[in-house]
Design a protein around this nucleic acid. Structure first.
Length: 586
DNA sequence: TTAGGGTTAG
């Protein structure tokens, strides 16, 4: 049917609008709409709603909203189509405002409305409103509806309220792959990786059939755990199933291999992809960057620009700049930063990029330049920026700037123990013992220990976790005895425990004991006794590795001829024959 | 006619 012969009646309009919706023909729909206006035809609710649906499906939100506003009579579908359009595109406040307007108008929401509007309550700041909607939902029959329930549990999970999310999940009268994935992903996104993995296994035994989204969420957890064998298992599963070509899933595979220290596998996945999003490039660049592979970072960035299919974004530059910094390509990194400033890439440098430059200059020993750079930045420096410069002052023994920065940091970030340690060590190296003692005293009063250290190692698909106060591992006594033995052997070949790494005010003997109990030493020692001779040992630590453990690992690698791959909070340390890929700067 | 879960960085 064409516009020319269009009659001003419901049936003609209805047939034509249906065709438009099916073919996503928004122009044609707009012409039909214009015809209605010209003919002074006031569309009934059904046709008005049909137009809203058409506009929403063709991403013309402005037209859709105009239509809704023009309608004198609206039904639950007209409201819900608009609310869900806002929700899906991330316009949370518009969606919520409209929901409130809908209630005021006296229209009863249905399960579609609740499922939509609750997805706009994610992100923490809307949680209070989300709770109110939840209590509203409980008074209706929709509480047990699976779509509404999935939205609800996802809302709680994204706000960090995983127990409430779990409660909603447990109360669902039925489960499907989406609700199962939502709860698994909730755990994974909060870094509760072991819980995510355990729940995945449990739900699998209960009959869940995972799809590409479930595998993507599971891979997030496996990345956090650096569970290489499990990651490979998921990969082969994915290859045998129909879901292997989803880009998001492949991006997660790049990430899992890179976080497990296996960049060759990451690159193989990356190269095999026919379509890549900016996240595929970013994941690969971040992988190289965390391994300190500056040359590869720059080459891949150049390739990305040559291909010119996707535009680099903020995270891309973060990876490129930090890759240049960790990979000893300071001038290249500085060059790219200056090009960003000049607008070459269409992405303005942000605070994180400035922080990368400070790190880059500091690492290269260009402390004065870094200090000048901070003072000229268009932002007020963050504690992380000062912290990065303080670290550089420690490594390059710059007392003057170090003292200034350290004092500054104690004011803005009094709870961070690392700052006190570096500053007191700076004083010690300058022979200013009185100042050193004052700083140590100050530290005792103010420091908050946020997260206890833990390290883990994967052997035959089993993750073995160690804490400083190790009481749980079945082979802990054997590990501790072996570790004592290593300490004696290593001292004979030059290992001197670095007691300045200990934050507690105890005697030297006690300090040495504390150091020897650091979780990464326990995990490393377990790796030695639990894996065949000569094989590389892969340890993961949740915090930044301390100088003493780093020294210990270097001697360990040389003594036993074992390659040690140690992933800490910020990067990978690949230690071969006593030499670390980080160049002793991290 | 309207609905729920996913990837990089910090």
């Amino acid at each position: 049917m064409a516009i020319q012969g269009l009659e001003t009646n419901f049936n003609d309009y209805d047939v034509l609008l249906n065709e438009c919706v099916n073919q996503r023909a928004v122009r044609e729909g707009q012409r039909v709409h214009a015809h209605m206006i010209k003919s002074c035809y006031l569309p009934p609710v059904y046709l008005g709603t049909r137009l809203i649906v058409l506009y929403v499906k063709c991403a013309c939100l402005g037209d859709a909203r105009k239509m809704l506003d023009e309608m004198t009579l609206r039904n639950v579908v007209s409201w819900t189509a608009m609310i869900s359009a806002y929700s899906q595109r991330g316009y949370a406040s518009e969606a919520l405002n409209l929901f409130v307007q809908m209630l005021r108008s006296g229209t009863e929401p249905n399960e579609f409305t609740f499922a939509s509007v609750l997805t706009s309550c994610t992100g923490g700041s809307w949680l209070d409103l989300g709770r109110q909607i939840h209590s509203f939902v409980s008074k209706t029959s929709f509480e047990s509806h699976i779509f509404v329930g999935s939205s609800l549990l996802d809302m709680y999970a994204k706000a960090g309220r995983i127990h409430e999310a779990r409660q909603v999940f447990e109360c669902l009268p039925e489960r499907d792959v989406v609700s199962c994935t939502a709860i698994i992903s909730g755990y994974a996104q909060l870094g509760l990786d072991e819980e995510a993995l355990e729940l995945f296994r449990q739900l699998l035994t209960e009959g869940m059939v995972p799809n590409h989204v479930t595998y993507t969420s599971l891979l997030t957890a496996l990345s956090g755990l650096a569970a290489l064998d499990l990651g490979k298992q998921v990969h082969s599963h994915v290859l045998r199933s129909k879901v292997h070509s989803y880009v998001v899933l492949q991006n997660s595979l790049i990430d899992v291999y890179s976080k497990c220290g296996n960049l060759a596998y990451s690159r193989r996945v990356f190269d095999s992809m026919t379509d890549r999003t900016v996240i595929s490039w970013n994941a690969m660049l971040v992988g190289y960057s965390k391994h300190g592979m500056g040359k590869e970072v720059v080459e891949l960035f150049n390739l990305m620009r040559e291909e010119n299919k996707v535009k680099p974004v903020s995270v891309t530059f973060l990876a490129v700049l930090s890759g240049c910094s960790h990979g000893g390509m300071e001038d290249k990194g500085l060059g790219i930063f200056h090009e960003m400033e000049k607008g070459k890439y269409g992405a303005e440098p942000e605070m994180v990029h400035y922080a990368c430059v400070v790190d880059l200059l500091g690492r290269a020993g260009r402390i004065d330049e870094a200090f000048d750079f901070i003072n000229k930045m268009p932002f007020a420096p963050t504690p992380a920026i000062w912290g990065s410069l303080l670290g550089a002052c420690r490594v390059h023994s710059n007392f003057e700037i170090g003292e200034f920065v350290g004092r500054r940091l104690l004011e803005v970030e009094p709870e961070n123990a690392g700052n006190y340690v570096i500053l007191s060590n700076l004083y010690a190296s300058a022979g200013r013992w009185e100042d050193m003692r004052t700083i140590r005293e100050l530290m005792k009063e103010k420091v908050v220990i946020k997260e206890p250290g833990r390290s883990w190692i994967e052997i035959d698909q089993i993750l073995h976790t160690f804490h400083a106060s190790e009481r749980t591992h079945p082979r802990r006594e054997e590990v501790k005895t072996k570790l004592m033995e290593l300490s004696v052997k290593f001292k004979e070949v030059g290992y001197v425990p670095d007691l300045s790494c200990v934050l507690f005010d105890v005697d030297e003997e006690q300090k040495e004991k504390i150091l020897l109990n650091h979780s990464e030493k326990l995990a490393l020692t377990f790796g030695l006794i639990a894996t065949p001779e000569g094989l590389p040992i892969r340890v993961i630590k949740n915090l930044r590795i301390c100088v003493d453990c780093h020294n210990f690992a270097k001697i360990f690698s040389k003594f036993y001829g074992r390659e040690v791959s140690l992933r800490d909070k910020t990067r990978f340390h690949r230690i071969v024959g006593g030499i670390c890929s980080c160049g002793d700067y991290w």
